[in-house]
């Protein structure tokens, strides 16, 4: 791969081409917020936290899906980007019922981390308080739609890594929901292999093992990326 030059926040960086802005930022310790990104899965640019400004491009692009090009001038730290990141996290909190105090993921939640990172101390928009199901039909795991942020990491890990295709998405707009098979209880799934990868992939307390209590959940999302790497070695 040819080596190219990019400028991120004024810093000159040499990198190989064909990689995304997010990968370059990670390699160079430039902080970049993400929620729907998980190493090992295809990026979809859905959470819009990794938005960057690129000189000569009049739109904001998601860093996780945009590949670097030679002499690209990128900014990840402008006031506009920071303001938008804060609004995005606020909207996540207002959208569903994120009651950290009673959540298993409390203290080990990527949404909380994102909130701290953008300095979010309160939400300026009205909470929507939607009615969400909690699916406890699976013998070991729980799917709590109250905490779901629709990052679809579970859907992607199930399809792309496990190959089972248990998780899917239904409906549109704010009615959008993660579903097991054709919207049947998870416990009755004929495709789920009970592998538990979605539990680790989930950034919040939406999918968790039954054996944990409030604030006790520990996750290992890096496992997904490691697994994908190991499989490549085997091939």
């Amino acid at each position: 791969m040819p080596i190219i030059t990019v400028y991120i926040n004024g810093q000159k960086i040499l990198t190989e081409s064909g990689v995304t802005i997010l990968e370059v930022c990670k390699a160079n310790n430039i902080p970049m917020l993400t929620l729907c990104h998980l190493k090992g899965l295809h990026d979809i640019g859905a959470c819009r936290l990794c938005l960057v400004e690129i000189e000569g491009v009049n739109r904001l692009l998601s860093g996780c899906t945009t590949q670097v090009a030679d002499n690209m001038i990128i900014r990840t730290d402008t006031d506009r980007i920071k303001r938008y990141q804060r609004i995005t996290v606020e909207l996540f909190f207002a959208e569903r019922n994120h009651v950290c105090a009673v959540c298993v993921a409390n203290g080990n939640c990527e949404l909380q981390q994102a909130g701290y990172a953008v300095g979010l101390d309160h939400i300026r928009y009205p909470f929507l308080y939607p009615e969400c199901n909690v699916d406890t039909s699976h013998p070991w795991f729980v799917m709590d739609h109250n905490r779901c942020i629709m990052c679809t990491r579970c859907v992607r890990v199930c399809t792309q890594v496990e190959g089972a295709g248990n998780w899917g998405v239904m409906n549109r707009g704010h009615d959008v929901r993660i579903i097991s098979d054709f919207n049947t209880p998870w416990g009755e799934s004929i495709t789920c292999t009970d592998c538990g990868k979605c539990v680790h992939a989930c950034p919040t307390g939406a999918i968790w093992p039954k054996a944990v209590a409030q604030g006790q959940l520990t996750k290992y999302p890096e496992m997904i990326g490691e697994l994908v790497e190991k499989r490549k070695l085997l091939q």
Binding site: I44, G45, A46, C47, R48, Y84, I87, T88, L91, F92, A94, E95, Y125, P126, L128, I149, M150, T152, V169, N171, R172, G173, H174, D175, V176
Partner: peptide, 13 residues
């Protein structure tokens, strides 16, 4: 479609 947060929640808000 409900994929990205700004459109999904923003339009509702």
């Amino acid at each position: 479609c409900g994929k990205c947060a700004p459109c999904r929640v923003g339009t509702r808000m």
